[in-house]
Amino acid sequence: MAAPRASLIDLSSLPTAQLNNVKNQLTQELQHLTTSFAQLKAAQGKFRDCGVSVRDGVGRDEGTPILVPLTPSLYVPGKLASTDVVLVDIGTGFYVEKTPPAAREFYSRKVEELGKNLLDLEKIVQGKQGNLGVVEDVLRQKVISESSNSGADGGT
């Protein structure tokens, strides 16, 4: 929303303080976007892991001995009882029964969707980075010319 408006204003005409504000705002936006990017990436990884678990874990014969995690550090031995259906969390508290191939299809679809979002986000991040670079350049030039101006004033 701010970007198209900013491009209409000649950046070099802004005072240093305002440029600094613009820079800070851009930095903040960029940080927010980078965090979102990392979160999306993590979510994608989780879905991918789920897909792998369904393929490697449930893809075995019934009765295969397994270790079931009760907590991340406590496992109890068990046996694979049924490989016909798995219960998939599809969000907002809903779980549905799916066959393992359908579950894997679900997870790969999720990974794909997130991949698309990640690509979009990457483009936005790059654009913002470009904007930030431009603002920083102008700001630097301003500071340099201002300090050389005041230096000239002090000389006379």
């Binding site: 219960l87 508290g93 809903f94 779980y95 549905v96 029964e97 799916k98 359908a102």
Partner: peptide
């Protein structure tokens, strides 16, 4: 979702 699938709510 194919019709026979059972839905659960947490």
């Amino acid at each position: 979702l194919p019709p026979p699938s059972q839905i659960y709510k947490l």
